[in-house]
Design a protein around this nucleic acid. Sequence first.
DNA 1: AGATTGCGGCACTGTGTAGTGCCGTATTAG
DNA 2: CTAATACGGCACTACACAGTGCCGCAATCT
Lengths: 206, 206
Amino acid sequence: MTSTPTAGKAGRRRDPEKDAQILQATLDVLAETDYADVTIELVAARAGAGRHTIYRRWEGKDELILAAIACTDSADLGPDGLPDTGTLRSDLLALLDPNWMGGSERRLRILSSVSAMITRTPSAVDAVTKAIVDPSTAAYRFLIQRAVDRGEYALPHNLDALAQVIPSMAAYRAFFMQQVVDEEFMLSIIDGVVLAALREPSAANR
Amino acid sequence: MTSTPTAGKAGRRRDPEKDAQILQATLDVLAETDYADVTIELVAARAGAGRHTIYRRWEGKDELILAAIACTDSADLGPDGLPDTGTLRSDLLALLDPNWMGGSERRLRILSSVSAMITRTPSAVDAVTKAIVDPSTAAYRFLIQRAVDRGEYALPHNLDALAQVIPSMAAYRAFFMQQVVDEEFMLSIIDGVVLAALREPSAANR
DNA sequence: AGATTGCGGCACTGTGTAGTGCCGTATTAG
DNA sequence: CTAATACGGCACTACACAGTGCCGCAATCT
């Protein structure tokens, strides 16, 4: 009711810009350091805000981080943002360049930082799942499904499992092995696992 | 030189049992809570030791945790500890029962807790890689290679990539999705990804 | 025995950070 | 105008934990 900006109240209005700036700053810090090292002080400084401005909007640190995760930009993982090169192999590979390095590498870092939070804050699982895990899986599922639809491959035995291969293996490598997710690695997964698990359609191809 | 237990020194000897008890307690706490929540106090209490006894043996918290990781028991992942049921499928599945739930689930929790440490302590990567990541991958590589050797499957295009599939996907699921790694899930990976990516050998099989 | 070191328990210091209160200033409604 | 609210900056409290010193006791060497 009174949540509209133009409520019949006196006083200065909250700057809607600030919300976005603070959430972005939170994601930045989260992408750079660990969850435990994310201090409100740091976020406030990064956002050019006072701590009060943060506490006025969110209950505490956890609420802030949850809100930030929820607004992670995953637009590039929607059907419209995905590459369409003609073959599944180059589609999957295309997802690497401006995406893994621009969008998804950031997502991966955030995912990694938030992992510490996941183990103790149950609601963090939902936030991460909705904002990061599900969109990633959905993107790969979409690409594979489209390749099947166009007759490039037969419908696999378990599409959901296959769609999780790349996000899982990329996360494992970047995260636990601290090694770069580069083209060479992606190719080894794409050719050695994903495409290897797919079969040509029953009708002869090529 | 003077490192042997019977050095010509006066005074009470260090209890070698204590080292093991403290490291085990560290792993226990690490498996139950997050890295940030691992307090020396907690470890000491769990080990029935005083904090001094810990600080006398290790420089600080990080050294302690690194030492604990290094002594993670991965004997069950050596060739002698692995199942040998006759088929790759049941070998992979057999690794789930007393192993994923007994040994590897614990390893997974530890892996997850330590992830926060990985991002800031470079040496943690080595410790985790040596103690947990490499042995797991090696175990799956061994099982697949053996199946190839006995003629069950042809040598895959990329054995290393395939050997990482299960640890990666299990970690991703347990860790980021906070869902159980049960038989149903394992079967979906085994049948939907790993075995799907393997081909019968050139000579007709069965 | 006497000296020396290990051990558990307690108290203490130092540090870092979440969260709050206050102040001066800016914005907006009436 | 005045009142009310937002904002940045600063100071302050509360708390948790790393790391250390001290005490009394136990074990082992000469």
